[in-house]
């Protein structure tokens, strides 16, 4: 993984990080660079400080501290020597570079009438190494297929952060767009036109409007666009058959999803929620479920064995809520709730 981001690093940092053993380089998830403070790296959900000799410790004493000059060079490299061309990115607090890697920035903000206009004196960087897991949706996709319309059912994917939601929807977009339906009966179906509204540039990781992840040949991406507006723009201009949106939750998102479903478009959306119960507590999601905007609800859970999913038909999701309110019979809908399915660690997103 280090090899993917090494071209962004100034020489000093590059030589230091290349001293990491190969398996560590492979598992690298984050590089946190703070000017004049210890260099921290993150891998497999853990973090360590990096010593001057390249070893890793839990304690920060004796760690390598990047100098102001190193940070300046890093900033120049990640902005292509053009901070002035990154105003929008600085307003959002991160830069997406080619390859989908995202670099979070912290420093002193510049305010303009109470609104953040940008960051200057940038003193901290968090390089998050992006990984694309091709085939992450292979087990889930067959359960979401709409046989009548030869496309996907509208689906809501629920999970807490860091569980692989984005990786999953990216792979769904890719498969649907290529027409790589992972079941026998659907293998002759053609690909579908996919529209992605990528408000935070995470799904497609566009650089100057061009996706750097492979999201498929029939995919159009509205990058860095507010979700509700982006959905309406895509529906009007690009006639998508499947719409993919990350992290819905605002009332206007619900409105746009309703519009899209009325137009016969399948919507695959994700939302932050611990589980179904939690999602029902959110008015926007509950209303969408009640109105039947989604056919299926998918819960994701990242375990030791990998990412597990569970598909629940939307009506069942609501009924079980009602059932629970009556405080009776949890066995009411065992047929509707499928068991947790998962993937082995090897290709864990």
């Amino acid at each position: 993984m280090l090899a993917r981001v090494v071209h962004l690093l100034p020489l000093e940092l590059k030589t230091l990080l290349e001293r990491l053993p190969d398996h560590m380089q492979e598992q690298l998830e984050e590089i946190r660079i703070r000017e004049g403070r210890p260099l921290e790296i993150g891998f497999r959900g853990q973090s360590r400080f990096m010593m001057v000799d390249g070893s890793l410790r839990q304690a920060a004493d004796g760690a390598y501290k990047p100098s102001a000059d190193t940070c300046r060079k890093l900033l120049e490299r990640i902005t292509n020597y053009s901070l002035y061309a990154m105003e929008e990115e600085l307003k959002r607090g991160f830069i997406t570079v080619s390859g989908g890697h995202r670099i979070g920035l912290a420093g002193r903000t510049i305010l303009d009438g109470g609104m953040v206009r940008g960051i200057r004196d940038i003193g901290a960087f968090n390089i998050r190494v992006a990984r694309e897991v091709i085939g992450a949706s292979a087990l889930l996709l067959p359960k979401l297929i709409d046989r009548n319309r030869k496309t996907l059912h509208s689906t809501l994917i629920l999970a807490p952060p860091q569980q692989g939601k984005t990786t999953l929807v990216r792979d769904i977009a890719r498969s649907v767009s290529y027409g790589l339906w992972p079941t026998l009966e659907a293998s002759s179906w053609q690909g579908r036109k996919v529209g992605i509204v990528d408000e935070r540039s995470e799904i497609a990781a566009c650089v100057r409007g061009i996706p750097t992840f492979d999201v498929g040949p029939r995919t159009d991406v509205m990058d860095a666009c507010p979700k509700a507006e982006g959905m309406m723009m895509l529906v009007r201009s690009m006639s998508p058959e499947v719409l993919i949106i990350d992290e819905i939750g605002r009332p206007e998102d619900g409105e746009a999803i309703r519009e899209a479903s009325h137009a016969g478009i399948s919507v695959v959306a994700t939302a932050h929620a611990y589980d179904l119960q939690d999602a029902r507590g959110r008015p926007v999601l509950l209303k969408l479920l009640e109105e039947g905007a989604f056919t299926y609800v998918v819960e994701l859970k990242r375990t030791e064995q990998g990412v597990m999913h569970r598909v629940v038909p939307a009506e069942a999701a609501l009924e079980s809520a009602a059932a629970r309110e009556v405080a009776a019979m949890p066995r009411l809908l065992p047929h509707a709730v499928q068991a947790w399915m998962g993937r082995r660690r090897a290709d864990d997103p």
Partner: peptide, 10 residues
């Protein structure tokens, strides 16, 4: 100073 500050500053 080229390249390392915002547009106005440049």
């Amino acid at each position: 100073t080229l390249g390392i500050s915002d547009k106005e500053d440049q």
